[in-house]
Amino acid sequence: MSKDEPTLLPEATGTAAAQATDEHAAMMQRMQADLIDSYDEELEMEIDDRAFDAAQGCFSSEQRSQRRDYFRELFRLQGELVKLQDWVMATKHKAVIIFEGRDAAGKGGVIKRITQRLNPRVCRVAALPAPNDRERTQWYFQRYISHLPAGGEIVLFDRSWYNRAGVERVMGFCSDEEYEEFFRSVPEFEKMLVRAGIQVIKYWFSISDEEQHTRFLGRIHDPLKQWKLSPMDLESRRRWEDYTKAKEQMMERSHIHEAPWWVVQADDKKKARLNCMAHLLAQMPYHEIPHPPVILPSRERHEDYERQPVPQQMVVPEIY
Score class of each variant (00 low, 15 high):
residue 182 F to C: 09
residue 182 F to A: 06
residue 183 F to P: 01
residue 185 S to F: 05
residue 185 S to K: 14
residue 186 V to F: 02
residue 186 V to Y: 04
residue 186 V to K: 08
residue 187 P to M: 05
residue 188 E to W: 00
residue 188 E to C: 01
residue 188 E to A: 11
residue 189 F to N: 08
residue 190 E to M: 07
residue 192 M to A: 02
residue 192 M to F: 05
residue 193 L to Y: 06
residue 194 V to F: 01
residue 194 V to P: 01
residue 194 V to W: 01
residue 194 V to M: 09
residue 195 R to M: 07
residue 195 R to Y: 02
residue 195 R to Q: 11
residue 196 A to H: 13
residue 198 I to T: 12
residue 200 V to L: 08
residue 200 V to K: 12
residue 200 V to S: 04
residue 201 I to K: 06
residue 201 I to D: 01
residue 203 Y to R: 00
residue 203 Y to V: 08
residue 204 W to L: 04
residue 204 W to T: 02
residue 204 W to N: 06
residue 208 S to F: 06
residue 208 S to W: 07
residue 209 D to V: 00
residue 210 E to T: 15
residue 215 R to S: 03
residue 216 F to I: 13
residue 216 F to R: 08
residue 217 L to K: 15
residue 218 G to S: 15
residue 218 G to A: 14
residue 220 I to L: 13
residue 221 H to A: 10
residue 222 D to C: 11
residue 222 D to S: 15
residue 223 P to D: 01
residue 223 P to C: 09
residue 223 P to E: 04
residue 223 P to L: 03
residue 223 P to N: 07
residue 224 L to M: 15
residue 226 Q to M: 08
residue 230 S to E: 03
residue 232 M to I: 05
residue 234 L to H: 01
residue 235 E to Y: 13
residue 235 E to M: 10
residue 236 S to G: 12
residue 237 R to D: 02
residue 238 R to L: 08
residue 239 R to G: 00
residue 239 R to H: 12
residue 240 W to L: 03
residue 241 E to V: 09
residue 242 D to L: 10
residue 242 D to Y: 10
residue 244 T to C: 13
residue 245 K to V: 14
residue 245 K to H: 14
residue 245 K to W: 12
residue 247 K to G: 06
residue 247 K to M: 15
residue 250 M to V: 09
residue 252 E to V: 12
residue 252 E to M: 14
residue 252 E to D: 13
residue 253 R to I: 00
residue 253 R to F: 04
residue 253 R to A: 06
residue 254 S to V: 04
residue 256 I to S: 11
residue 257 H to P: 00
residue 258 E to K: 11
residue 260 P to L: 07
residue 260 P to D: 01
residue 261 W to I: 00
residue 263 V to E: 01
residue 265 Q to E: 15
residue 266 A to W: 06
residue 267 D to Y: 12
residue 268 D to K: 07
residue 269 K to D: 02
residue 269 K to C: 03
residue 269 K to W: 02
residue 269 K to G: 00
residue 269 K to Y: 01
residue 270 K to Y: 10
residue 270 K to F: 06
residue 271 K to Q: 14
residue 272 A to H: 04
residue 273 R to I: 03
residue 274 L to A: 05
residue 276 C to G: 07
residue 276 C to S: 14
residue 277 M to K: 08
residue 278 A to N: 15
residue 278 A to Y: 06
residue 279 H to I: 02
residue 279 H to K: 13
residue 282 A to V: 05
residue 283 Q to V: 09
residue 284 M to F: 12
residue 284 M to Q: 10
residue 284 M to S: 07
residue 285 P to Q: 10
residue 287 H to M: 11
residue 287 H to S: 11
residue 288 E to Q: 12
residue 288 E to W: 00
residue 289 I to A: 08
residue 290 P to R: 06
residue 290 P to V: 04
residue 291 H to T: 12
residue 291 H to F: 08
residue 292 P to L: 10
residue 293 P to M: 03
residue 294 V to G: 05
residue 295 I to Y: 13
residue 296 L to Q: 15
residue 296 L to M: 14
residue 299 R to C: 11
residue 299 R to Y: 10
residue 300 E to V: 14
residue 300 E to N: 09
residue 301 R to S: 14
residue 302 H to I: 10
residue 302 H to A: 09
